[in-house]
């Protein structure tokens, strides 16, 4: 099997494993052709990883903010095909890791082999497909992803059993996405005692993969706390909220990342 073992995600965590900031936004939002430009502004502003969401009509794991950005993007005319067109020059403009995140159905309809080839052609490093079950991944997708140098990122939650976390750790080599609480996506202001206990529990498992904490990271404080238990954090809804109202994308994104990282 022709697998590439190391890519930009691995290199990032090898060179700088601390306070990694990954930012999520939805492709084709707020305007259809903003996708690549937002990625550029994020890199310039100092984000470490970019997660581009592929919009879906029925995003069951998402809260109201990301539901709305999905809907707006689809209304704008966004599609998987168009996304790959928009990302054709990705690697001429962007050097940090880029991950595509989305639900399985649009990927299946595009065709899994074609999808992975397009990812490789555009220089995508990883995938987060929340409703792709582990068993299907291992049986049908793992080899294809690997052939195209794509890291599959799994989610874990406070309810994920230790044995399952170990299994996930064994079958991934990018990073693990640690969902901060039992919830859909959405920005929150701070972490409770229970969440901190859960962060400590996972931290003490000494997993081989880096951990990024996501869901509910909204500001400098939550980013710092999350980073103290992990390799960094993922911001989604709070960034989408900024995009909803931004009048000067470049300047406001710069300020946003600066405020988070401070």
């Amino acid at each position: 099997m022709n697998t590439k073992t190391s890519n930009r995600i691995n290199e990032l965590f090898e060179s700088n494993g601390r306070e990694v900031l990954s930012v999520y936004y939805t492709a084709g939002f707020p305007e259809l052709n903003d996708t690549l430009r937002i990625a550029q502004y994020l890199e310039e502003a100092g984000a470490d990883i970019i997660e581009i969401g592929m919009p879906f009509s029925d995003p069951v794991a998402d809260g109201p903010t990301i539901q709305e950005s999905n809907k707006k993007a689809l209304d704008n005319g966004m599609s998987v095909r168009l996304l790959f067109d928009q990302l054709a020059e990705l690697r001429e403009k962007i050097s940090i890791p880029v991950i595509l995140m989305g639900y399985i159905n649009p990927v299946l309809q595009f065709g899994i082999n074609k999808f992975c080839s397009e990812c490789e052609r555009c220089g995508v490093d990883g995938l987060i497909i929340p409703d792709l079950p582990m068993a299907e991944y291992l049986a049908l997708y793992k080899n294809i992803f690997a052939e195209h140098g794509l890291k599959n990122v799994f989610l874990i939650t406070p309810q994920t059993s230790e044995s399952r976390i170990r299994l996930i750790d064994e079958h991934t080599d990018g990073f693990i996405y640690m969902v901060s609480s039992a919830s859909v996506t959405g920005a929150k202001d701070l972490f409770g005692e229970q969440q901190r206990k859960y962060f400590e529990r996972i931290q003490s498992m000494q997993l081989k993969n880096p951990l990024l904490i996501g869901f509910g990271i909204s500001n400098h404080e939550t980013f710092k706390v999350a980073s103290s238990y992990s390799n960094g954090a993922i911001i989604g809804s709070a960034f989408i909220k900024l995009l909803q109202t931004a009048t000067d994308l470049k300047a406001q994104i710069k300020q946003f990342v600066k405020d988070i990282k401070a």
Binding site: V60, A61, I104, P130, D131, L132, P133, E136, F154, L155, I156, T157, Q159, T160, S161, R164, V179, A182, S183, V184
Partner: peptide, 11 residues
């Protein structure tokens, strides 16, 4: 068939 669910629903 199958169970195409996000990890949050798995347990």
């Amino acid at each position: 068939g199958g169970a195409y669910i996000p990890e949050m629903l798995y347990p």
